[in-house]
Design a protein around this nucleic acid. Sequence first.
DNA 1: TACGTGATCACG
DNA 2: GTGATCACGTAA
Length: 195
Amino acid sequence: MRLDESFFQGGNVTKIASELLGKVLVTCFDGVRTSGMIVETEAYSHRERGCHAYGGKKTKRNEVMFEPGGLAYVYLCYGVHHLFNVVTNQKDKADAVLIRAIQPMEGIEMMKSRMNTGHDKRITSGPGKLTKALGIDLTVNGMPMDGDVVWVEHREKALLKKKVLESPRIGIDYAGDDAKLLWRFSLRDNEWVSR
DNA sequence: TACGTGATCACG
DNA sequence: GTGATCACGTAA
């Protein structure tokens, strides 16, 4: 079952970030499906300093965050890596969830090919790696999560709460005290979580 | 621990 | 226009 916009417009970005754990992120390019179970996410809200849209700051890069929830927000980080987010909340309330790691499911050969490697060890264990493995780049920015390129499926029953680990977000030292928020969610003991 | 990498942003 | 910055990954 596919998640629709009602899921992404729920308004509580940390709740959505934790609920995305265990769900399946899917892409389909040229008829080839690749997918993986989401094992690590981070929440970002316009109300805190870690967010690109902090204080309602709207730029060319982040304008899709100001649209209603259910769109993909992709941007280039450090000139090399595409990072994939899902916009949540409602129009002009710019919140998003960063997908940081997945556990490969479908299309593993395609992922290995995209990663230029012969093995499948930890090929999706990080926000920049999973986008490469899934074929996500800037052309995906702004796409709806209920189209035929990228979407999220719900397959398994609800996760046990105690499987969800909450910790500080990675790589946002510039956010001051907001860097201490426990807004990173991961599946405890899952080997595909990033380091 | 160091640094590549290039789009984007905040200045002028 | 230009320089600083950056929600990472890899090598060492």
